[in-house]
Design a protein around this nucleic acid. Structure first.
Lengths: 341, 341
DNA sequence: GATTTTTTGATTTACGTACATCAAAATTGG
DNA sequence: CCAATTTTGATGTACGTAAATCAAAAAATC
């Protein structure tokens, strides 16, 4: 049996009350006594029974999720996963609140972050907009001892405790290699469709993509990036236009959302030519396109895993517990038509 | 606040003791009274606080893991992950015992399974050997109400509650498409290195692989399977021999273990020719080979995820709780040199 | 050495559930 | 209707921890 508070009290030759004072860093314990207790804890290998402690404390974990108000299928999926987590909240003792902020608006995000310390959540997850002000606001909250994880989009250089999302540079590199290898010896041009270059994840994907393309596939030329603002209509217009004008396009990399428009453009304009297409995010549309060979590979991040991971990490940080690193690594899923879930 | 037993007692107009009798299916409750309580439970949406219940019961989850005594790096990794889980067992209230059985020996596995019902574990995870006797033994245990999950290798057609492993047919299909697409318009022959055709996962991978190859890449001919018995020495010998004899080989699919030998053979015999290679299982050796371009893609199943998933599912089944299906789906990882963890 | 202050001990209640015991009430059978 | 039986209630203890109270002991101060 694992040792209990009674065991350490006995081992340290002190009372239960003193052990409790040490464990919960309450005042009124002499230094030497505290040491005795801590020694006993170490020697017996005592670890607090979190379940029993939570029961006694009546503890819940008030968590806040801060999301951009973006109307694309990935964000809808992310929202849905958070709602699923809310349904589980009684069993998991969580109390989840979501706050929507205007997308790509650092100032709005900062003001939400600044108001947050007042209602004392025990953890914060945010889809970060990459800006110095946001970084400063996050760092301040971290210094105030709030557990913070970034979700989907990271805030590098900040003090956030954890990032629950994929490595977007690696994603871009992977897309480049898939496209390059699938195209083989062919020479030609590659169209890149992004949402916006103001978003860090899109910039990073592009960065990884161009790096590998330049280094390893010199026969493929990357055309100027089309910014579709994650909007199907805009994406459709841009891609259809590019395909009409440029007969040399043999590959497409879609690194953002709005793939519905991309797919429509491909079906209209590319019936007679062989295009190799790599896109991000598995949705009903991209899935269908993968199956009918309009798209050749889909890179995906699992929003459900990201949300569950963020919650696990925030709870663990709030309790000062360790996380299982390998479990919390969000993987880049690569789907071909053969390994669809 | 979520309702407690006191709340249902009050709502049903009965005593705590009666609620307890209903909840824990103890005898001595009239039918009408039981209904009243069950109605109250439903109406208040009561769910038992598993943490408190486990505390009161002093419950632990005695689990048994049955593994083949195979000396390859995947099984070593699986063992290591189970040891990690054992380290977490006090926090997770698990009590994990592993039993090694001779590999590919249905009779041995069956006899272990038959002795198992005696020491009453609350859950069983096994790497299944695909044989009718094993299926019968598993079904019998399921009927005796033991939660059972298959690990890594499934037992289709049996009553096991869950499979914690990848879809090996999909894995084989994915390997075929990667190889086919990477090779592009080239014509030639494909060498396949397997462990043994007696193992179900290897058979399934091959099945998926040949199906896609036949349907979609008719210019690529699959050579007779080399059975390396998951042994690096044997694998080395077989692959080196095949490469020497057959100059038409342009691709290799290694669907089992023993990749150390494969890699050595590739480095010795294929310096002057361009081979495209897809292998299974990410190990130190395959990782290095992926980085130095000896291997082009690695398909992988994460043993840590499989073990943790098996434990979560067994605990949930033991408590009669639902599992989060999407969380427990073991994904096929595809690694290129760009997205290595 | 007396006084104040700090430290420690002893004890109790609580969290939500499990489980046991004994008495009281309700139901059933004859 | 009485006895036997079944069903229900009341109550207490336990699990491991948190948190509070009050008294007692020890240390520090003058």
């Amino acid at each position: 049996m694992r040792p209990t508070v009674h065991d350490i009290a006995a081992a340290a030759g002190v009372s239960l009350a003193t052990v409790d004072r040490v464990l919960n860093q309450r005042p009124g314990v002499r230094h030497v006594t505290r040491e005795k207790v801590e020694t006993a804890i170490r020697e017996l290998g005592y670890v607090r029974d979190v379940a029993a402690a939570n029961l006694a404390k009546g503890r819940t974990y008030p968590l806040v999720f801060i999301l951009p108000a973006s109307d694309n299928s990935f964000m809808h999926g992310l929202n849905a996963e958070i709602r699923q987590a809310v349904l589980r909240s009684s069993a998991e003792r969580t109390d989840i609140r979501t706050i929507e902020v205007p997308a790509f608006d650092p100032a709005a995000l900062v003001s939400v972050l600044e108001e947050l310390s007042r209602d004392k959540p025990c953890g914060i997850a945010l889809v970060a907009t990459d800006a110095p002000d946001v970084r400063a606001a996050v760092d301040r909250l971290v210094r105030e001892r709030f557990p913070i994880v970034t979700l989907v989009s990271d805030l590098t250089g900040s003090l956030r405790h954890h990032y629950a999302g994929v490595d977007n540079i690696a994603a871009g590199r992977t897309a480049a290699r898939l496209l390059g290898r699938f195209l083989g010896p062919r020479k030609g041009e590659i169209a890149v469709l992004a949402g916006s270059m103001l978003v860090r994840d899109h910039r990073e994907r592009l960065e990884g993509f161009t790096a590998v393309m330049a280094d390893e596939f010199p026969d493929l030329a990357i055309l100027p990036v089309l910014e579709g603002r994650d909007d199907p209509e805009v994406a459709h217009m841009l891609v259809a236009d590019a395909l009409s004008r440029n007969a040399g396009i043999i590959g497409v990399y879609s690194l953002g959302a709005g793939n519905r428009g991309l797919i429509r453009a491909l079906k209209e304009k590319a019936v007679d030519r062989v295009l190799t297409v790599v896109a991000h995010e598995l949705t009903a549309h991209t899935r269908a396109a993968l199956i009918d060979n309009t798209i050749d590979a889909i890179l995906n991040q699992d929003a459900g895993h990201e949300v569950r991971s963020a919650i696990r990490v925030l709870k663990a940080k709030a309790d000062g517990l360790a996380v299982i690193e390998a479990q919390e690594r969000i993987r880049l899923d690569i789907f071909l038509k053969d390994n669809l879930p």
